[in-house]
């Protein structure tokens, strides 16, 4: 899990005997081989592809290896609204998912402790959507929120929506879909931290003149920071690269395309492999920077 990445259990190992380190190396070998084969090689290939140049007088989709760094400039120039939109949508979805999941996880993990049966039941309900493919679930939402659907016609009948307004195809629909799809990824890490939250700290806080809100802000939130960081990362990273919710086939429209949709289109439709590869690398780099700053700022390594 993401937790391991931030753990600061910097147990400085004693200089182990050589024989021991050889065994450790041997045990690590399968993992290293796997990573080289399925992570490092594609990554190198991706970097090389991103620098390719179109073959002179070649067909569409024919490229040669080169050092054509202008690819990056071109994709940023052409697709910067998509890049910004992706991170904007992902941020909005993360915030909404956190706002929705925190009270839910708090209820399951802290308030429902006295009723273990209710606790398990609620956890099952959080996980239950996983039993159905998320493509199907997203399609179902498309049906439920389409212009002819009961929900939208009712809203229009009640004049809560303009008669000619749509919901599917709007940014709101995409953010709604992203939020919905990532809520379990937010709730579960939050639950695991809040489940272990020692309520005696909360009592100590209120004993030391902190109002319920101050206890929440000064004690509960800092103590649940590992769950918040893990949950937001597990939501933000995949949401930024998501290409299902924003797709026109699902909840998106022409002007809600995210970077994932652009990459997909460039790879599969336009056969512009260098552009797609360059966009992928930009996405990866930006996420790495954001995550790095975020983890550093939240200071969670102290808590784990």
């Amino acid at each position: 899990m993401a937790f391991a990445a931030f753990s600061s259990t910097s147990v400085v190992a004693e200089p182990a005997p050589r024989k021991k380190s050889r065994i450790a190396l041997f045990l690590l070998l399968p993992g290293i081989l796997y990573l080289v084969l399925f992570f490092l090689t594609p990554l190198v290939s991706l970097v090389l592809t991103s620098l390719q140049a179109p073959r002179e007088f070649g067909d569409i989709g024919q490229y040669d290896y080169a050092f054509n760094w202008q690819n990056y400039v071109q994709v940023v120039d052409a697709y910067w609204p998509h890049i910004l939109r992706s991170f904007g949508y992902a941020l909005a979805a993360t915030v909404f998912a956190l706002a929705f999941s925190y009270p839910l996880a708090y209820f399951i993990g802290v308030k429902a402790r006295r009723w273990p049966l209710l606790q398990s039941l609620m956890l099952v309900l959080v996980i239950a959507p996983f039993f159905i493919s998320f493509l199907l679930r997203t399609l179902a939402w498309k049906q439920l929120l389409s212009d002819e659907s009961f929900v939208i016609t009712s809203l229009k009948a009640l004049s809560l929506m303009a008669p000619d307004a749509h919901f599917t195809g709007t940014p709101a629909a995409v953010i709604f879909g992203l939020t919905y799809n990532f809520i379990p990824f937010m709730t579960l890490p939050l639950f695991t931290t809040l489940e272990r939250l020692d309520t005696r700290y909360l009592e100590a806080g209120s004993d030391l003149y902190a109002s319920p809100f101050q206890v929440f802000r000064k004690v509960t939130i800092p103590l649940s920071m590992p769950g918040i960081v893990a949950g937001t990362l597990l939501t933000f990273i995949p949401a930024a690269g998501d290409y299902v919710n924003a797709s026109r086939d699902f909840l998106g429209g022409a002007d809600t395309q995210m970077i994932g949709n652009v990459i997909e289109a460039n790879f599969l439709v336009l056969q512009n492999y260098p552009a797609a590869a360059a966009l992928s690398i930009i996405l990866m780099a930006v996420i790495l920077v954001i995550v790095g700053v975020y983890v550093k700022r939240s200071g969670t390594e102290e808590l784990l």
Binding site: S206, L208, Y209
Partner: peptide, 20 residues
């Protein structure tokens, strides 16, 4: 009155020192 409004402080059995 609520605990935070009382002029009382407790030394808890578990100490309950804030770990963060």
């Amino acid at each position: 009155t609520k605990p935070h409004q009382r002029p009382v402080n407790t030394v808890f059995q578990s100490y309950a020192l804030f770990p963060h």
